[in-house]
Design a protein around this nucleic acid. Structure first.
Lengths: 344, 344
DNA sequence: TTGTAGGCGTTATCAT
DNA sequence: ATGATAACGCCTACAA
């Protein structure tokens, strides 16, 4: 049953040419006459020839595969980012391998190895939450594999293209929005601050309070390692059961915001009158919740597209040493919804 | 900068043995003495040797990569399924390539080609919504690549392992639950019924109504090609603006349920008193919505694990002709929440 | 414009 | 227990 594979040898024989002619005809090498090219292609199609990508990569020591490493897929931002990466890559003739680290440093290292030994043409990655050392990335760069970091990036890896949202600015605007709505005791739920983006968001929050002459109390800043909805109840309790609780919460992601809203409501809080809530990122449900949830959406589609384009630029760069690495920072706007409409 | 790759040749030279010895020592061939094995391995580690997976696949014409084809990733069921596949595969020494078809038949065919020319060891797929012809799957089977279909399957592909939830039973139980809660005019939102699972869910709904001696009106059955939350408003209007509207809605997925609830509330309906809503599948938000949303969760973790295990069984099967293909149907239970508590 | 032949890094089949 | 050598299928200088 296992159909014997048809190789360029059978095509060559059937078409009455040599294998190099077949190889060239198939890839449209200009040296081959249109006539033979068409004949060879017809034969190949006839025989159901399919190029063995493995053999091809071995020979060229390169592939048309882009490796993508993400922490998780069940966040709208990330699945949408991956989707955009895939669309763009596909349209440019590349395939995509997606790997989930599940925020584990070990898994991240393992996948980096797998991908490098699979000879991916390049790599797009968002760092896992756990990642604090970066040798594995340096190592893969030394093998000449271009890397683009997206969203979760680090300053400790120079000479790597980075694509991020302006996290400082986004957090600043979200906080400012709460202030503008009349909230005065504004709390913040942060992710692990060794991650640059959470560090930046925290800075944005602090600066906005400072610029508005509002107090920034340490007990109004809660930290979550996972920012998952499972962590919502704990966070809600931590912040809301204080002697002097906040009257608004800004969270480092929207999932946490949604979870906290549900918990706060169960605890009897009136959202948004007693408590305003806004979260970074955006989930499809943000608009469907009642009250609908204000957010700081990230331009995932644009980020994915840029990531692929920059990566392929570097892949095709004739002189890798000379390639100029950029850090691209995309602007973000907030979406104000019911959850921050104090006088709704 | 591009580090010259270290191959088994350099390891062999450094260890003072032949390349075959290196190859065997590395994979723990029993013929090699422990002493040389350890020495070779130490040398390999020292030199930073990494096996070239491409060369290895070319030589063995097989790989340790499992291809996964899914329609989308931004559904909890699918991202959770993929996650489970990945965990299981990883623990069994396989890597995973994930491809999104975005429910396009053309994309599905394209990825099948890519994967077959990448010599994946096997394939796990959920059919795209558009897919109605299956030649591409027959074709890849003829190449000797084992395939496991999950969730979205078809009876038109015999000799392929299939893993599904008991869609008929799940729909039956969901409808029965609505009846038990006192709802009498029960509507249904279906996906495209050329897909077996939507066909089965519709059957389960019909049968449950019949068994309860309740009417099954065609105008209470709405169809959605996408079952996306964008389609919610249209569905809500179609069903609720009838002269005699239903008093409960069962939807073929939970996302649609959530979206319809939001729309119905905006239209002034009291959920669950005037309108009960339950949906197939489960989103993380189902429990967080107010009212929380009843659902028919699918055992994604178990399905992913089974899919990988069955696939690898078939990959390792010495006589592929003799492999017995199963259709495994997993039972589902409903989760009753506030959205169907009529007398709450 | 086309053909020949060597190489990509591993595995596997023979020998030894 | 180890070594030499021929595949695996394609690509690409170099020749013609």
């Amino acid at each position: 049953m296992k159909k014997s594979k048809v190789t360029i040898y059978q095509v060559a024989e059937a078409a009455g040419v040599s294998i190099s002619t077949v190889s060239r005809a198939l890839k449209g090498d200009s040296r081959i006459s249109k006539k033979t090219r068409d004949r060879v292609r017809a034969q190949a199609a006839e025989l159901g020839f399919q190029k063995n990508a493995i053999a091809s990569s071995l020979s060229t020591s390169s592939s048309r595969i882009i490796g993508v490493i993400v922490s998780q897929l069940n966040r709208e931002f990330l699945s949408s980012l991956v989707h955009s990466i895939e669309e763009t890559a596909f349209s440019l003739g590349y395939s995509v391998i997606i790997c989930q680290t599940n925020n584990s440093y070990e898994r991240e290292k393992a996948y980096l190895n797998t991908l490098s030994s699979t000879q991916v043409a390049g790599l797009i990655a968002t760092l896992s939450l756990e990642t604090a050392s970066f040798e594995h990335f340096r190592h893969i760069r030394e093998q000449g594999i271009p890397v683009v970091l997206v969203d979760r990036v680090t300053e400790q890896l120079p000479n790597i293209t980075k694509i991020v949202t302006d996290d400082f600015q986004g957090a600043y605007r979200a906080t400012q929005h709460l202030v503008g709505q009349g909230y005065r005791r504004i709390a913040y739920v942060s992710g692990p601050t060794q991650q640059l983006l959470y560090h930046d968001r925290l800075r944005g929050y602090r600066r906005a309070l400072q610029d508005a002459d509002l107090p920034c109390r340490e007990e109004w800043i809660a930290y979550s390692d996972t920012l998952s909805y499972e962590d919502g109840p704990r966070l809600a309790r931590t912040l809301l059961q204080q002697p002097q609780p906040p009257d608004a919460i800004f969270t480092a992601n929207n999932l946490t915001a949604i979870s906290i809203i549900a918990c706060a409501q169960d605890m009897g809080w009136d959202i948004p009158r007693q408590l305003g809530v806004i979260g970074f990122s955006e989930e499809p449900f943000s608009a469907l919740m009642r009250p609908s949830v204000s957010s700081v959406p990230q331009p995932s589609t644009q980020m994915g597209q840029l990531a692929v384009e920059k990566l392929i630029e570097e892949i095709n760069c004739s002189d890798p040493e000379a390639f100029i690495h950029q850090k691209i920072m995309l602007d973000v706007q907030i979406i104000a919804r019911e959850s921050t409409r104090k006088d709704g």
